[in-house]
Design a protein around this nucleic acid. Sequence first.
DNA 1: CCCAAATCATTAGGTTCCAAACTATGGTCC
DNA 2: GGACCATAGTTTGGAACCTAATGATTTGGG
Lengths: 161, 161
Amino acid sequence: MSASLAARRQMPCAGACAAGLRQLGSLISTELDRSLRRQGFSSAAFGVLQVLHESGGSAAPHEISDRLAVSRATVTGLLDGLERRRLVRRARHPDDRRMRRVEMTGRARVLLAEMLPEHNRALGRIFAGLGAPEQQQLRTLLNRLQAHLRPVRPGLMASRR
Amino acid sequence: MSASLAARRQMPCAGACAAGLRQLGSLISTELDRSLRRQGFSSAAFGVLQVLHESGGSAAPHEISDRLAVSRATVTGLLDGLERRRLVRRARHPDDRRMRRVEMTGRARVLLAEMLPEHNRALGRIFAGLGAPEQQQLRTLLNRLQAHLRPVRPGLMASRR
DNA sequence: CCCAAATCATTAGGTTCCAAACTATGGTCC
DNA sequence: GGACCATAGTTTGGAACCTAATGATTTGGG
């Protein structure tokens, strides 16, 4: 590890930052997966439920796709799985018949409430190495990076023809 | 995006940091992929070559696995592909016959040298939103997080029975 | 009014990755 | 020396993800 960082001093910081961000993103994903899988969930499915919860219980598939930064095709697959487990229902959108409206079921609400404490404990373990002000600092830097990255790739995940 | 971050203020910062790290890791990977794929490389395969280069031309598969934060099974698959393209050779380790020693070929060195300039330009675009001191700050925070995360999961990707 | 472009969801096919099981080797303790 | 466990790499099966193509619907200009 230290060897790999030392070997990068040729390209000032960006290379080390990119490597760190990718590695940490991956480590955090698998760590949270571990905590969710014990409760029978994948992190992608959990993300869909979180988006639905934040949107007040229902959303359109393309909104879920945007928020999770995955393609609409992937969302279709995730919803298939969630619907099989009766955690989600697909209904027609009342106004625009091209769209669907995805709704959480009561079962999903109960499950989500049950797993949040454990999920938050896992988050706490992961970020225990940083104090609150450092976490805030990190968050600020990440937000600035995200804000700059968005205009670089405007139609990131849209399916074009 | 801003909506999803705002909705997370209930769990102080850790949730937002985790979401940001995962999303940025993924965005950076796909962004670098775009630049590498034009030259016929996946970012994981490129990572293997980088690790080999930093290690002086040869390394054991489990070292590659640790540095890239992917499982050993994945490294096996990556090496299969690189070996088919004659960019890497698998030899037996002279001392420990369980291990292998993976070596870059001359072809790989030439290719890596050719792609580095474009790769560094892509890195520059991604991190253009942060000044040099902020990049250093980010790097420090990431290093601290990595240092703390390592002992939490000692046998991170090892297959246990 | 009608046809062309845009938008939404889905399907099909392929890639990448992981976890678990398996094989082979090395080290340890009696 | 043999039982036993840890370690290294591979195989296998499945999940998540992408791109490209398709069908359905809405929208807008001529």
